[in-house]
C-alpha cells in the first residue's frame, strides 16, 4: 500500500509518502504560517522523489488535531480536495498520538512505556493525552482533553515508566508534581511529523477503516470556546 500523509497542526508543515515496501520519504519545514505555501509543493515533490504519482496512492492520512485551528484546517482542506479528486479513503490521525509515536521511535521507548503528550493550547490550557507503547505504536489510555496545566493527570498507579513529549511540557512547572516528577525524561521539542502519521495510519488503512473525503474533519477538542452569545 502507498500512503500519503500530511500535517499542519503546529508551526511545522510536513508531508510523507509511505511506500509499498515500507520505505518512508518525508519533507518537513518549520515556518509559522507557511503551510499554505509549502504543503502542496511538498506533496508534488514527494511523488517525484518516490517515482510515484498521486494516482498510485491507496490511501491518505492527515493530522486531525488537536492543534492550531487555522493550521489544521489547511491539511484537512488539502486532504479533502485530494481524496475527493482521487476517490481515496482518508485516515484521520490524532496529533497527540503522532507525537507519542515520534517519541517512541526517536528515543527507543520500550514496550509498556507510558507517553504523556502535552501541546500548548494557549488561553492557559494544554491539550493532553496519555499513551502506552504496544508493538512499537502508541495506544491511547486516556481521553484526549484540553485542561489547565495544574489539572493534568496520569492513569492511576500503573507503575510503568512515563515519558513526557510535546510543546506543552514547556509549561511543566505548572503541572502537578505527581505528574512532572514521575517522568523518566521529557521531550518538549517533539513536533508532529507526517512520517509518524503515515506509520499510524497504515494499519487502519489496510483494514479498511479510512473514511470518505467529506468525513475527513478536524478534531478541535476545544469546542466550547467562549464565543459570547449576544445578550449573555
Amino acid at each position: 500500500m502507498n500512503l500519503l500523509a500530511v500535517d499542519t497542526t503546529a508551526d511545522a508543515c510536513s508531508a510523507a509518502i509511505l511506500m509499498q515496501d515500507g520505505r518512508i520519504h518525508e519533507r518537513c519545514i518549520v515556518e509559522p504560517r507557511g503551510h499554505t505555501r509549502h504543503l502542496l509543493p511538498m506533496a508534488r515533490e514527494l511523488t517525484h522523489a518516490t517515482g510515484l504519482s498521486l494516482s498510485d496512492m491507496d490511501a491518505l492520512a492527515f493530522g486531525r488535531g488537536p492543534g492550531s485551528f487555522t493550521g489544521l484546517r489547511i491539511a484537512t482542506g488539502v486532504v479533502q480536495g485530494l481524496a475527493w479528486g482521487l476517490s481515496l479513503p482518508v485516515v484521520p490521525v490524532s496529533s497527540l498520538a503522532t507525537v507519542a509515536a515520534g517519541a517512541i521511535r526517536q528515543h527507543g521507548l520500550s514496550d509498556g512505556s507510558g507517553i504523556a503528550v502535552a501541546f500548548d493550547a494557549r488561553m492557559g490550557e494544554v491539550y493532553w493525552g496519555c499513551f502506552v507503547q504496544r508493538d512499537g505504536l502508541p495506544e491511547p489510555v486516556s481521553q484526549e482533553c484540553v485542561v489547565a496545566p495544574e489539572s493534568v493527570t496520569l492513569p492511576a498507579g500503573d507503575g510503568r515508566p512515563w515519558f513526557g513529549a510535546g510543546s506543552g511540557w514547556r509549561l511543566s512547572d505548572q503541572f502537578p508534581a505527581s505528574v512532572s516528577q514521575t517522568m523518566e525524561a521529557c521531550y518538549p521539542d517533539r513536533i508532529p511529523h507526517a512520517a509518524d502519521i503515515a506509520r499510524l495510519a497504515l494499519g487502519p488503512a489496510e483494514s479498511g477503516q479510512g473514511v470518505p473525503a467529506e468525513e475527513a474533519i478536524p478534531v478541535y477538542i476545544r469546542d466550547e470556546v467562549a464565543w459570547k452569545k449576544s445578550g449573555s
Binding site: T36, L39, R44, G77, V79, G81, L86
Partner: peptide
C-alpha cells in the same frame, strides 16, 4: 486548500 488540492488531483 480544497481548490488547490483538487487541482493537483
Amino acid at each position: 486548500s480544497v481548490a488547490h488540492a483538487m487541482g493537483l488531483a
